[in-house]
Deep mutational scan, measured.
Amino acid sequence: MTEYKLVVVGAGGVGKSALTIQLIQNHFVDEYDPTIEDSYRKQVVIDGETCLLDILDTAGQEEYSAMRDQYMRTGEGFLCVFAINNTKSFEDIHHYREQIKRVKDSEDVPMVLVGNKCDLPSRTVDTKQAQDLARSYGIPFIETSAKTRQGVDDAFYTLVREIRKHKEKMSKDGKKKKKKSKTKCVIM
C-alpha cells in the first residue's frame, strides 16, 4: 500500500485542523484551538488504489514558523489553505509557496490551493482571484467548507493525484537520464 505524506499549511484560523478532522473523523470542530502540530493517518481508496494518507496539520501562528522547514522537508505534497473571508490569509499563500519551493529546492512541488469556509456569506476573496492565482502557479484550486464537508475529500484526493503525477514524471525523467548515460565512448 502506497503511503502519501501530505502537509496542510496556511495562516492561523483558516480551518486547516477543521478540514483535516472532517476528512479523518467526519465531524466539524467549530471551536478554535490553535494547533502546534498534529499528525493523522487514514486509509482510503483513490482511483481504485488503496493508500495510506499521513497528514500533518501544522501551526499557522507566526511564533511556530521555525518548525516549518522541518515538516516541509518531509512532506510530499501540500494543501495551501486560505479562508475566503480573510484576504490576508490569501496573500500569505505566496509566502508559504515560496518557502516550500526553497526548502524542497524545487520549482515543481505537488500543491493544491484550497479556499476554505465557502459556506460563509462574508467572502472577501473572489473565486476568480483564487483561480487566477492557482493557474499562475500551475496547481489545482478547490473551494471547501469544513463545516458542510463540501470539497473536503476532493481537496485531499486531488493532492494525492498531483503527487502521483509528480512521481510518474520524475521516474520518466530518471529513465531518460539513465538511457543517456548508457551511451559509451570508444577510443581507438
Rank of each mutant, 00 (worst) to 15 (best):
I24R: 02
S106N: 11
R68G: 14
M111A: 03
M67S: 11
G60K: 01
K5R: 11
I24D: 01
T127V: 06
S171R: 14
G48N: 09
Q61H: 12
V125C: 08
Y40F: 06
Y157V: 11
D33Y: 02
G60L: 00
V125R: 06
Q61T: 12
L53E: 03
G115K: 03
M67A: 04
Y40R: 00
D33T: 02
S181P: 14
L56H: 03
K117C: 13
G60I: 01
R41P: 00
N116K: 00
T35C: 00
L52I: 14
V44S: 10
V44N: 15
G174E: 13
I187G: 14
K177P: 08
Y64M: 09
I21Y: 03
Q70Y: 12
F28E: 00
V29N: 04
I93N: 04
Q61G: 12
H166A: 09
I100E: 03
D57K: 00
K182H: 02
S17G: 00
T35W: 00
A66V: 06
I142S: 14
L120F: 13
R73E: 13
K167P: 04
Q70T: 13
D126E: 06
Y32M: 13
R73S: 13
E162W: 11
C51Q: 13
T87V: 14
R97L: 15
Y71T: 11
C80W: 03
S17C: 00
R73V: 11
R135L: 09
S136R: 05
Y137R: 05
R102W: 15
S17F: 00
S89A: 09
Y137L: 11
L52C: 14
I46F: 10
D173V: 04
M67V: 10
T124C: 09
F141E: 01
T158S: 11
K172M: 07
D69S: 07
C185Q: 15
K184T: 06
C51P: 13
D105N: 04
S145Q: 02
C118P: 14
L133I: 06
R164M: 09
V14Y: 15
L79C: 06
Y71L: 15
K175P: 04
C51D: 05
D33M: 02
H95V: 03
G151D: 05
Q25M: 14
K176T: 11
R149S: 05
T35I: 00
